[in-house]
Write a protein that binds this DNA or RNA. Structure first.
Length: 140
DNA sequence: CGAATTTGACCAGCGC
DNA sequence: GCGCTGGTCAAATTCG
């Protein structure tokens, strides 16, 4: 963890900020391949085959920051952290420990399902989230 | 009453 | 240069 936190201050909410660091931890080079369900919110663990999805077939859907090959100050402040992962759940709002407020919805041609845009509504948290259903797996 | 959600419109970037 | 797609904002509405 280096500069993952948008606001590395000693605010009273540094408690969940610290939690955020743990969630962003898998953006680095150490993906929990041996323990894919370690970063899965317990709320998602409603099925029994979800853990298998993470380590079996969906393990190649992870994409780290795209600004790695640049090696310059190109967009280091714009693209701080970009993590893509697939979860299997009936609900779109996964409780990562934060409050997500929906601010937009868009229909994408890539998928018959609408894409939702969420923003962290917690004070000091400027994280944005893009959530869309898998066209092959509406539950994902 | 306040906060969250919804939906449409607007803007920017990219491809042709 | 124009059109298209994706992303964000803002006003109105709904729910707690």
């Amino acid at each position: 963890m280096t500069d993952k936190n948008p606001k590395p201050q000693d605010s009273p909410d540094s408690g969940f900020i610290n939690e955020l660091s743990e969630y962003l931890n898998f953006d680095g080079d150490q993906w929990p391949d041996d323990d894919p369900d370690s970063f899965v919110p317990e709320h998602v663990l409603t099925q029994d085959n979800q853990a298998n999805e993470f380590g079996a077939s969906s393990g190649s859907h992870f994409e780290g920051a795209s600004s790695r090959d640049v090696g310059n100050e190109r967009e280091k402040k714009e693209v701080i952290d970009r993590v893509a992962f697939k979860t299997k759940s009936e609900v779109e709002i996964l409780d990562d420990g934060f409050k997500w407020r929906k601010y937009g919805k868009k229909m994408v041609k890539n998928s018959p399902n609408p894409r939702n845009y969420y923003k962290c509504s917690v004070d000091g948290c400027a994280v944005k989230k893009r959530v869309e259903r898998d066209k092959d797996d509406p539950s994902s």
